[in-house]
Design a protein around this nucleic acid. Structure first.
Lengths: 106, 106
DNA sequence: AATTTTCGCTACATATTTTGTAGCAATACC
DNA sequence: GGTATTGCTACAAAATATGTAGCGAAAATT
């Protein structure tokens, strides 16, 4: 019950979806969740490599945010999805299927 | 068959999901799809208002991109989702349900 | 026909976000 | 003590987003 007060860019309505749009609308957020799907645990540096060598600055900024929002967590094994992160990851898998069809039409 | 060549930030793999992450990872993209869901047609100015008065510069940039990617289109009635946009919108609705539960846990 | 309103934007200067490179402090192993 | 790996920070430069003002075209109103 800690981060309900986190400010949400571009919306004062307090609608949860707006909080999600805020964080997911930042570069690398979805990619990070994506790379951690199927319950892998990755170190900071492994995660960097998976994300096309994103700069450590950018990665860390995003990781901080995702941790605050309880989507990922960090322990001795590295970074991994929380329960919430895993659920969100499943949505991304759905989007993956869709995106493949969409891309063919482009 | 026109925009397969559009560059994708942060990925050279050509995986469709990466193209999606690229565009959706920019501010206002998801919000725009969201506001156009349930097949409304909105004028540029109406859309601006709906999106918490996003600047016209930002809005227009995003609209151009979303049009190129065939997610939205523009006609005499204003801006509206394409077939693909509508499908993507449905995924966002799913995320909305999820986000509500998630937000409560924060 | 003249005026007003609404349309989709553009210009441009400023602010915010993201990036890339280098490297540091802490811990583990040899 | 040296070497390797960890997570991460500093900092300057590049890219992206913002806010305000207003333009030119078309449509509606008087």
């Amino acid at each position: 019950m800690i981060n309900r007060n986190r400010p949400v860019r571009g919306s004062t309505s307090g609608r949860p979806i707006m909080r999600l749009f805020d964080v997911m609308g930042k570069r690398w957020s979805m990619r990070i969740i994506w790379e951690l799907r199927d319950d892998q645990s990755l170190t900071f540096r492994q995660l960097r490599e998976r994300c096309d060598d994103v700069s450590p600055t950018s990665l860390n900024q995003r990781l901080k945010e995702l941790r605050q929002l309880r989507l990922i967590e960090h322990d001795d094994n590295g970074y991994q999805l929380t329960q919430w992160g895993r659920e969100l990851g499943k949505h991304l898998l759905g989007l993956n299927t869709w995106a493949t069809r969409w891309d063919k039409a482009l």
